[in-house]
Write a protein that binds this DNA or RNA. Structure first.
Lengths: 185, 185
DNA sequence: CTCGAATTTCAAAAACTTCTGAAACTGCTT
DNA sequence: AAGCAGTTTCAGAAGTTTTTGAAATTCGAG
């Protein structure tokens, strides 16, 4: 069976290679970015590929296009599902799972923010609270130490609460916030 | 010569060990966090130590307290200087360099944001512009591809411009933004 | 229930990052 | 201008993360 028998009404043939090249360049750029954030380059590339093609792709498509192993493709796709920035789909009469990337950039960023708050900020706040609670209340050096911790705690509580408010899963919260700030003097 | 002959008017002796323990716990927590962001655990620990002690420390202090090599301490301190979240100082009649962490949390966060915009967002935007410019203008598939890139570009331009406005080196820009959002319905 | 396609898991290998420690360097002091 | 305290550099070692590929597992169809 042919791999992907013209997935949509084919455009002028000479554009296909060109498009593929542009997509590859985007995948590379986004992959670079990913490795600077906490996720692996490959995971970012898989996401980039799904985003930029805008089509449902299966594990084999991803493997072939990015030249990675089955295990790696499977792991990366799963991790992206956990982050909530890609979703499963199915094609009629095909047992395979296909994956599509969230196409709304703001929704994607909201999902990323939520996940990072959960993974990074919450545990940090928990540690800070613990440390703060075990601190004695007397002594000048201790008082200064506590003040420094409190300043940090206050900042992260603000971040957490703004995150809750503007990075919720539905709605235009984040986009609204951006507009509000853009217009503010 | 004694290492650090009571650097400030000593509090009750039994508190010193306790304070040290609290500081160590903070260093560990912040170090963890650092490794999730793009910086190395050690670099984050060095910063944590400087922040939480609030005192100027020299390379040897850092080496001893964190049990790391001279090279590592030197590299980490330098990287933190590059990020603009610690500064050099000197003590009268002492040839050594000492380092202090920025103590204002908001200023610290502004510095981190600025640096991350510069290192992560700017290069990505540059790549996106390049890819976008090389794209042909005709063909349906190409048009969709371009639309996806444009959505991303728009988002990162917004991020960049908000960053410019609210993460400037001086002033209360970021804190103001946070208050504005906190009060907004 | 059995078959087989699709997916997940995982131990080992490869790739990459961080750390060390000794040597090279810098620039102050005498 | 030699000595020296302090700092930086860097090649290799140690440690960590990522990737592979083959085996185990899942799950739908017959």
């Amino acid at each position: 069976m042919a791999r992907r028998p013209s997935p949509e009404p084919a455009g002028p043939a000479h554009h296909d290679a060109e498009l593929r090249d542009l997509q590859d360049r985007f995948v590379a750029a986004w992959g670079q970015m990913g490795s600077v954030w906490g996720i692996s380059r490959t995971m970012a590339e898989v996401h980039a590929l799904l985003y930029v093609t805008g089509q449902p792709l299966c594990t084999d498509d991803v493997m072939e296009r990015l030249q990675i192993s089955r295990g790696n493709a499977s792991m990366s796709l799963r991790a992206l599902l956990d982050w909530g920035i890609i979703a499963r789909t199915h094609k009629r009469g095909d047992r395979k799972e296909y994956f599509v990337a969230e196409q709304d950039v703001w929704a994607m960023v909201r999902a990323i923010l939520r996940e990072r708050l959960k993974r990074e900020v919450n545990p940090l706040l928990a540690s800070l609270y613990e440390i703060r609670e075990d601190a004695p209340r007397d002594g000048e050096a201790i008082a200064e130490h506590n003040a420094r911790l409190d300043a940090l705690i206050e900042f992260f509580e603000t971040a957490e609460s703004l995150g809750q408010r503007f990075a919720g899963p539905a709605g235009a919260g984040l986009e609204k916030a951006a507009r509000l700030l853009t217009r503010a003097l």
